[in-house]
């Protein structure tokens, strides 16, 4: 039986300017001309001076039950793609389709919006509200967050005094409590202790067993991707250049095609990691 995508992206394109002054100038032109958020014409707009395609004709489907990992060297467009999928940036061309009422929670930086002068508990309400939850919804999730973050009594001490691992635990738990259909995690699990990371991975695996749930996981950490991904996409210079459910193969492809960007020593070290990895 053919599976139904949760999200289906076609021809998605996004352009940026390399030059700061031109970037401002085009921004001013957009304000003055009132350019709409998405380009409605069937043709992709042309590049202006100093512009480049940060995302170049991306086709992508995310299916229910998948943990889709996206890898690529720095500047390959991974985060830009995630920002378009979570409606932070407007697109320049293409379509982003999805199931009606699909709830997407994207985590770009775990601590964004958290207030260091406030206690962990107060921050649950602040960050929860930023995710669009009201007080009752947060009240209902409080026990789950408390339980998942394992902070105990420290939940009532200032967030600013937490270790980076504690911060990550709390922030991750709040994001999870929004009960998304699609959970986008962009390099956000780079911090935190290994026990917590293992707990997050177990949680993500369990998360996608529920009907109509999917995860997009952006990371260049070979071990993490090997551990958790069910499919891997490789990006390079704004394009999707590889797509495979064979994670090992996809990662090897990524490394073999990024030697100019990574440096050969780093590339060899990472390739060795893949070869030595045991499932």
């Amino acid at each position: 039986m053919e599976k139904t995508p949760l999200i289906s992206v076609r021809g998605l394109s996004k352009k940026f300017s390399r030059d700061i002054k031109y970037n401002m100038y085009y921004g001013l032109l957009d304000v003055v001309s009132g350019r709409k958020a998405a380009n409605s014409s069937p043709e992709r707009p042309a590049l202006r001076k100093h512009e480049f395609w940060a995302l170049d004709n991306i086709d992508l489907d995310l299916y229910s039950g998948e943990i889709l990992s996206v890898v690529g060297a720095n500047g390959s467009g991974k985060t830009t793609l995630m920002r378009l999928l979570s409606n932070v940036y407007p697109r320049d061309h293409g379509t982003i389709m999805g199931r009606e009422g699909l709830r997407i929670t994207a985590v770009f930086a775990l601590n964004a919006g958290m207030q260091s002068l406030y206690t962990g508990r107060e921050n649950i309400y602040i960050k929860g509200a930023m995710y669009g939850m009201n007080k009752e919804e947060i009240d209902r999730q409080l026990e789950f967050i408390d339980d998942f973050s394992e902070l105990g009594k420290r939940l009532d001490t200032p967030f600013g005094n937490y270790s980076s691992g504690m911060k990550a635990r709390l922030s991750y738990a709040i994001a999870l409590a929004t009960e998304p259909d699609v959970f986008i995690i962009d390099e956000a699990l780079a911090v935190g202790d290994s026990a917590f990371k293992a707990k997050c991975f177990d949680n993500l695996r369990e998360f996608v067993t529920h009907p109509a749930k999917g995860v997009i996981f952006v990371s260049n950490h070979i071990n993490k991707v090997m551990k958790i991904a069910t499919r891997t996409l490789v990006m390079r210079e704004g394009q999707l250049i590889y797509n495979s459910t064979d994670i090992k193969e996809a990662l090897e492809f990524y490394l073999n095609n990024s030697s100019d960007l990574l440096g050969s020593q780093k590339q060899q070290r990472k390739l060795k990691k893949i070869r030595d990895y045991e499932f």
Partner: peptide, 22 residues
């Protein structure tokens, strides 16, 4: 609104033009 039918579920444009604008 543009709609595409895929298997049993209907897909809709997630961020249609103008929704966040106004």
């Amino acid at each position: 609104m543009q709609k595409v039918t895929s298997a049993s579920h209907e897909l809709v444009e997630l961020f249609p033009r103008g929704r966040s604008d106004n």
